[in-house]
Design a binder for these strands. Sequence first.
DNA 1: TAAGGTGTATTACTCGATTGATACATATTT
DNA 2: AAATATGTATCAATCGAGTAATACACCTTA
Lengths: 124, 124
Amino acid sequence: MKVNFNNRDPVYVQVVRHFKEQIATGTLEPGQEIPSRRELANKLKINPNTAQRAYKEMEEAGLIHTERNLPSKITRDEKVLGAVREELIEQAVDSFVTSIRSINVPLDEIVGLLQDKYQKESKE
Amino acid sequence: MKVNFNNRDPVYVQVVRHFKEQIATGTLEPGQEIPSRRELANKLKINPNTAQRAYKEMEEAGLIHTERNLPSKITRDEKVLGAVREELIEQAVDSFVTSIRSINVPLDEIVGLLQDKYQKESKE
DNA sequence: TAAGGTGTATTACTCGATTGATACATATTT
DNA sequence: AAATATGTATCAATCGAGTAATACACCTTA
């Protein structure tokens, strides 16, 4: 468990994003248990309330379930789980298309740039 | 002159972005005069200081030049002008690649989505 | 000369999101 | 029963970006 925090976005947003990525890539599986609020807070060196806020968002989005004091679990709802990946992708594509179109960049040029950068520079 | 403001980003950032887009697409030409701070503020219904801040950013970036009280002008420095387009594109591509890669989306799938959306939905 | 436009600097305020402190009920465990 | 861990709710504090108020020097022009 490791999250590369940036200084722009709120911590709780980045935590949610991180879980969504884990779900989208299958690293987190349906029904899998996740750390408690306080445990997560310890690992990530963040305030427990911040962890709670992230979990609350995910709970409301139906991504996780919590019963009493038992460990929260990733939902088994395939529909919800599938939508996570689609949502992340659509969001990225939409925002990208908006940016690019306002500069009138030909599609060919874009695809070329993407191919260059996609596999490359996985490092840093 | 019309800027579609959103509620996320600071106004002065959006103003700068707007000018950069105009430059990148050639709508604003080298040496062309731009409105005074107060005039722009009137048109866009924003505070004159906000306009000033946007112009200051552009001045520091070398995008515009200001002499005394004369109307500010778009720079004639071709190097700077060309870099604007490249910067906008690179920024968009980088951010997109980062998003997409963390979800492990195959490049083929991406290109398909892009082709669908790029020409489409110019409306809304 | 007076008036009105310009760019610019300094300062203050606002305002809201984000984070943190604290408390409470429940459940489990020892 | 006591202790500890859990989820949750409420409230307070912070804190900094963004915006605004104001003033000043300059120039042009009427």
